[in-house]
């Protein structure tokens, strides 16, 4: 089931508006465990989308970010695609700093800690969350 299919501008403000809108739509999924996940989804989306704005599209207001959210067989799937050169060159990959008091690149590790699974295809990142995890926890 497709929940969201939208393109947004390459600004942090557009990311915020999209996250609020997407959270409202995700709440409507017929799965009670979603409520306890909304904070994590909110943060995950902000991390992926802010990264696309800053490192994918370099704040270029002529470029867009394409966002799709699906819900299939108790798995939430988020597909975020920017118009950049691909995620490999992004700071998003800087995982070496880890969870320390240092100031940068906490996003990806945070997504992992929250239990999301992700993979990259050029300039697209696909993030998945199996709602069965919430039911079991």
């Amino acid at each position: 089931m497709l929940i969201v299919d939208k393109k947004i501008k390459s600004t942090f403000e557009a990311v915020h508006d999209f996250v609020i809108e997407a959270a409202d739509l995700i709440k409507k999924i017929d799965a009670p465990e979603v409520d306890s996940l909304l904070f994590k989804i909110n943060i995950m989306l902000r991390e992926v989308l802010n990264n696309a704005v800053e490192h994918g599209n370099n704040f270029d207001d002529t470029k867009f970010i394409y966002c799709k959210i699906f819900y299939e067989e108790e798995i939430l799937v988020f597909e975020i695609e920017d118009e950049g050169e691909g995620f490999v060159a992004n700071d998003f990959y800087m995982m070496d700093e880890g969870f320390t008091i240092k100031n940068r690149s906490r996003g990806l590790e945070l997504i992992e800690k929250y239990g999301f699974e992700y993979r990259f295809k050029k300039n697209k990142v696909i993030v998945e969350y199996d709602l069965n995890k919430e039911m079991l926890s």
Partner: peptide
């Protein structure tokens, strides 16, 4: 709402 930029703000404030 909070994101890693916001967390960095708190860390920077603490420092």
């Amino acid at each position: 709402n909070i994101d890693s930029v916001g967390v960095s703000f708190v860390v920077s404030l603490y420092k």
